[in-house]
């Protein structure tokens, strides 16, 4: 029964991405066109973004630079919570993209941004080293396995620390699977978890599906039922004190546009 319900949630999420998500994208297209058209953007655009967005945003930044040769796009990729603290301390940024709504709330509550829009979602998967030392495999039954079907407490498991978004999600899924005691190390960001999996130093790690895509053949990944309980939403906003708000708006429009969506989907992100 529970499995059916969880699957239904997953399906409805997928449905949301295909159908309901189109409307905001259409609007963004309209908004993006005039900025790209008559006058080019200049100066420096500074984007603070979650570490998991490194590959997609770098590509989108280059795309914007091609369109506006006078524009220089710079990125600061790090853990979302650390970035939110930097912005609260007055770091000069134009755009903030967070891997969860908590760090964005830190920024909006301080009056440093408004109208944050969710542009992607990123569920957790169980990443396993490619030689799979612990022999972790889903049971041969149909449907998504539960986390407890894959992991036992004896496995060496790396997750993010509960202080950062991927760790909050990991705690949620582990808790609901009755595996709260499974982790052996709480890392400071999701890429550190992935490194430990890639090196084969842990039997498994909880990472975002987009990170597995970025790691290529170095890791195997298993989806599991409980991940639907804690799918991180990625909000983006132009900051109130943005030195280059116009370019910031153009970047956010690009992220929300059809092209941005496609880049995010290609990298493994889900539609909001």
């Amino acid at each position: 029964m529970r499995r059916t319900a969880a699957l239904a949630v997953l399906l409805s999420l997928a449905g949301c991405g295909g159908g309901g998500g189109l409307t905001p994208a259409g609007e963004a297209e309209v908004a993006a066109d005039p900025t790209g058209g008559d006058e080019g953007l200049t100066g420096t655009l500074t984007v603070f973004a979650a570490a998991s967005l490194t590959d997609v945003f770098t590509g989108l930044g280059e795309r914007l630079e091609v369109e506006h040769p006078q524009l220089d796009v710079r990125f600061n990729f790090a853990g979302s919570s650390a970035l939110a603290q930097q912005i609260a301390q007055g770091a000069p940024a134009d755009v903030f993209a967070s891997a969860a709504e908590g760090p964005m709330a830190t920024v909006t509550d301080a009056g440093l941004a408004e109208d944050a829009e969710v542009f992607a979602r990123n569920p957790l998967v169980l990443a396993v080293p490619v030689d799979n030392p612990a022999g972790i495999e889903p049971p041969a039954t149909a449907g998504l396995p539960g986390l407890a079907d894959l992991l036992v407490p004896e496995h060496t498991v790396a997750v993010c620390a509960p202080e950062v978004p991927c760790g909050a999600a990991a705690a949620e899924v582990l808790g609901s699977a009755g595996l709260a005691d499974a982790p052996d190390t709480y890392d400071d960001d999701v890429r550190a978890v992935l490194t430990k999996v890639e090196l084969g130093e842990v039997d498994a790690g909880l990472v975002y599906v987009s990170d597995v895509r970025a790691a290529g053949d170095a890791v195997l990944a298993y989806a599991f039922r409980e991940s639907a309980r804690a799918v991180n939403a990625y909000p983006v906003a132009v900051l109130a004190d943005a030195p280059n708000a116009e370019a910031g708006r153009a970047f956010v429009d690009l992220v929300l546009s059809e092209e941005g969506r496609r880049a995010l989907t290609d990298a493994g992100f889900q539609q909001p």
Binding site: G79, S81, A82, A158, E163, D184, Y186, D187, A192, T195
Partner: peptide
């Protein structure tokens, strides 16, 4: 330490690790 020993309260979480992680949420 955080790379090789990981971060687990009681066995490998030393003060600098606790400080860094606390900074992410509660300065």
């Amino acid at each position: 330490t955080i790379t090789f020993a990981g971060n687990f309260p009681g066995t490998t979480q030393t003060m600098p690790l606790a400080v860094y992680l606390a900074l992410q949420q509660e300065p």
